[in-house]
Amino acid sequence: MQIGVTFPQTEIGADPQVIRDYAQAVEGMGYQHVLIYDHVLGADPTHRPGWTGYTHTEMFHEPFVLFGYLAALTQLELVTGVIILPQRQTALVAKQAAEVDVLSGGKFRLGIGVGWNPVEYEALGTDFSTRGRVVEEQIELLRQLWSKEVVTFKGRYHTVTEAGLSPLPVHRSIPVWIGGSSDSALRRAARIADGWFPLGGRMIRCVP
Rank of each mutant, 00 (worst) to 15 (best):
I3N: 05
T6H: 07
F7H: 08
P8N: 06
P8Y: 09
Q9C: 11
T10C: 14
I12F: 12
G13V: 07
G13K: 01
D15A: 11
I19W: 09
R20L: 15
D21N: 15
A23I: 12
A23T: 10
A25Q: 09
A25F: 09
V26F: 08
V26Q: 00
E27V: 04
E27M: 04
E27P: 02
G28Q: 06
M29A: 15
M29Q: 09
G30C: 02
Y31E: 06
V34C: 05
V34W: 03
L35P: 00
H39M: 03
R48E: 12
P49I: 04
Y54A: 11
Y54S: 12
E58R: 04
M59G: 15
M59I: 14
E62N: 09
P63Y: 05
F64H: 04
L66H: 09
G68N: 06
A71L: 01
A71D: 05
Q75V: 08
E77R: 06
L78S: 07
V82P: 05
I83R: 00
I83P: 04
P86Y: 07
R88H: 12
R88P: 02
R88Q: 08
A91E: 04
A91F: 09
A94E: 01
K95N: 05
Q96G: 06
Q96H: 06
Q96R: 02
Q96T: 06
A97L: 01
A98H: 02
E99I: 11
E99T: 15
V100G: 04
S104R: 00
S104V: 06
S104P: 05
G105R: 00
G106N: 01
F108V: 09
R109N: 10
G111D: 04
G111R: 00
G113Y: 04
P118W: 02
V119L: 11
V119R: 00
E120V: 03
E120W: 03
Y121P: 08
Y121A: 07
G125E: 00
T126S: 12
T126D: 00
F128Y: 14
S129A: 15
S129R: 11
T130W: 02
T130D: 08
V134R: 03
V135A: 14
E136A: 13
Q138A: 13
I139M: 13
L141C: 13
L142K: 02
L142T: 13
R143T: 10
R143I: 13
S147Y: 03
V150D: 12
V151D: 05
V151H: 06
V151R: 01
T152Q: 04
F153V: 14
K154V: 15
G155T: 10
G155L: 04
G155S: 07
V160W: 11
V160P: 12
T161I: 15
T161V: 15
G164V: 02
G164D: 05
P167F: 10
P169H: 01
S173K: 01
S173G: 09
P175A: 07
P175E: 03
V176K: 00
V176A: 09
V176I: 14
W177K: 05
G179L: 00
G180K: 00
D183I: 13
D183K: 11
S184V: 15
R188E: 03
R191N: 13
G195D: 06
G195H: 03
W196A: 14
F197T: 09
L199F: 15
L199Y: 14
G200C: 08
G201D: 05
R202D: 12
